[in-house]
């Protein structure tokens, strides 16, 4: 069964399409990445899944049912625009947000204490949210997303603004939840995060889906014509090779996509004597390369 089934949804503001004819399915128990440049329509899509805004057309099924208000308590949602009531005490605030999800009483109290303990925030429970540092507030927001034991978690740009320590903490918890059977869908414009965590992706650009499916398969289908090159010398001479399709040059490091059916061995022979080759690796394309290929370099 699919945890989320989005079918042909569109959302229009005046003549502007925020999302157009978008369809995708999130397999249960998987980690799903919604990928796209800023303004592509990721947040609008997520808001429609959450019933915060209503699609103009199309249908959304969540956890096997038509999305409705009652479903909200089974979902944990971390919006892109997220915050806390500044004047509320952390403990009360979490209890309030859990109560809204129908999670209350002794069990809720235990859950909140457990999470606060895990994030090392126990001694902040009686403090007002505004007294917390930004990093601590982000942890509290995350607790609010998961404390009611949702079956599905939707995270909109969860890593934005997190320091490396909290990024790792969040990633670990996401994997842990995946292992316990929770479905996770999250959006980002950062490729490396998707590549490391996601099973499936949907790449959105300009309101429409341009690529979707299993990440490993996508990469495989893209062909093994990606070359990682570390070199010393005049990069311009490398470009002279006729079967080069795209180059992402960093000065001493290069990601090169060859044209379809080009032979990497010929390329290596071509390089010999023109530049000093320190590393030559033939591999599947990085998501970054696929992204740029699909969306165009202007967007990154």
């Amino acid at each position: 069964m699919e945890a989320i089934d989005v079918e042909n949804i569109s959302k229009q503001y005046g003549s502007f399409y925020a999302v157009k004819n978008l369809s995708f399915g999130v397999p249960e128990g998987s980690v799903y990445g919604l990928l796209g440049p800023n303004g592509a329509g990721k947040t609008t899509t997520i808001r429609m899944i959450m019933n915060v805004i209503i699609p103009d057309q199309g249908s959304i099924r969540v956890l096997g049912e038509k999305m409705s208000e009652d479903m909200k308590s089974r979902i944990g949602y971390l919006p892109e625009e997220r915050g806390l009531y500044p004047k509320m005490k952390v403990g009360e605030l979490l209890a309030f947000l859990a109560h809204l999800k129908g999670f209350r009483g002794q069990e809720a109290k235990k859950g909140i204490d457990g999470w606060l303990d895990r994030f090392d925030l126990s001694k902040w429970k009686e403090k007002k949210a505004e007294e917390l540092s930004r990093g601590m507030q982000q942890k509290v927001q995350f607790i609010a997303t998961v404390v009611h034991k949702p079956e599905l978690i939707i995270l909109d740009e969860p890593f934005s603004g997190l320091d490396p320590v909290n990024t790792k903490l969040l990633k670990d918890i996401m994997l842990e939840m995946k292992e316990s059977g929770v479905t996770i869908i999250f959006s980002t414009h950062r490729m490396e995060q998707i590549e490391m965590i996601c099973d499936n992706i949907c790449l959105i650009n300009k309101a429409q889906s341009v690529l979707k499916g299993n990440l490993a398969e996508i990469k495989k289908n893209y062909g093994k014509n990606m070359i990682i090159l570390e070199y010393d010398g005049d990069g311009r001479r490398i470009r002279e090779f006729p079967e080069v399709d795209k180059i992402d040059d960093y000065g001493k490091y290069m990601e090169i996509k060859l044209k379809d059916r080009a032979d990497p061995q010929k390329f290596l022979t071509f390089l010999a004597g023109k530049v000093r080759v320190d590393r030559f690796e033939i591999k599947e394309p990085t998501l970054n390369a696929i992204f740029i290929d699909k969306v165009g370099e202007k967007n990154e």
Partner: peptide
């Protein structure tokens, strides 16, 4: 305004209308 400017509103809207 406080709910909006503190960005807590969408968190709350994930639970109710």
């Amino acid at each position: 305004i406080e709910e909006k400017s503190s960005r807590v509103v969408e968190v709350v809207l994930s639970s109710l209308k």
